[in-house]
């Protein structure tokens, strides 16, 4: 793992989903259930996350995600918890999904996909010509053919369910299969929490990760407090 706040946070999310499951995730983040945040299950999430510290190398601190991906590509690291964007590094190195490398959603018995994406926003304006151009760009972006080509190249899942993704590679097929059942989909926490609260949790997770002396009880209390306090 690359030791930057957001990467530590991403791995924490993975562990949370894998160990705690989607129910606990929703109770803690969506319902803001204080008992859930202080529960035994949540303690187990932090405990498991803490144990992963031993699996990183000495050069982890401050390393960029793509430098870390390159360690996996070159066979110097076994695995990395990352999103679909890491696939670009593998493609660039000429590696094939399912043959040279594999993907595991989770790792969990009931893997869950948190969905996320980027948006295009057009500022409001009055010129009809510009509006026509905006409409053309928007139609092009959501065109089935474009969706297939773009997502096959990037390794992500399409934003509409009615396109034929037969060209997807082994890694993407796993994600697409998960998408078919709504039970496997959850909101990422940056879509649930305000960026302020999300950031405080990231700080806490990052501090816990780099401070092995921090107790589970301490981190869990702070975690619950932030969720009660913030929006």
């Amino acid at each position: 793992m690359g030791g930057q706040g957001w990467q530590e946070d991403l791995t924490f999310d993975d562990v949370f989903m894998g160990v705690g499951g989607k129910d606990l995730w929703n109770r803690v983040y969506v319902d803001r259930d204080e008992d859930a945040a202080k529960s035994e299950e949540m303690a187990k999430v932090f405990e498991t996350f803490g144990k992963l510290r031993d699996l990183t190398d000495e050069g982890s601190a401050g390393r960029n995600w793509n430098d870390t991906t390159s360690l996996v590509v070159r066979g110097k690291a076994a695995a990395q918890a990352m999103g679909d964007w890491a696939r670009g590094e593998f493609v660039l190195a000429g590696k094939k999904a399912g043959e040279d490398y594999g993907c595991v959603p989770g790792p969990s018995e009931n893997p869950v996909l948190t969905t996320g994406g980027d948006v295009f926003i057009f500022p409001k304006q009055d010129n009809p010509e510009v509006e026509a151009a905006q409409l053309r760009l928007a139609s092009m972006l959501l065109d089935p053919d474009v969706q297939v080509k773009f997502n096959t190249a990037k390794g992500s899942t399409p934003v509409r369910g009615d396109v034929n993704m037969a060209s997807a590679d082994a890694c993407m097929q796993k994600g697409l299969a998960l998408l078919e059942n709504d039970d496997n989909i959850a909101l990422p926490k940056n879509a649930i929490l305000s960026s302020d609260t999300d950031g405080r949790i990231q700080d806490l997770v990052s501090q816990f990760w780099t401070t092995p002396s921090m107790t589970i009880e301490d981190v869990q209390n702070q975690f619950a407090e932030i969720l009660q306090d913030g929006s």
Binding site: G3, S206, Q207, T210
Partner: peptide, 9 residues
Amino acid sequence: QTGGGPGIA
């Protein structure tokens, strides 16, 4: 140099 890390150190 550090991005504030390791952690928030």
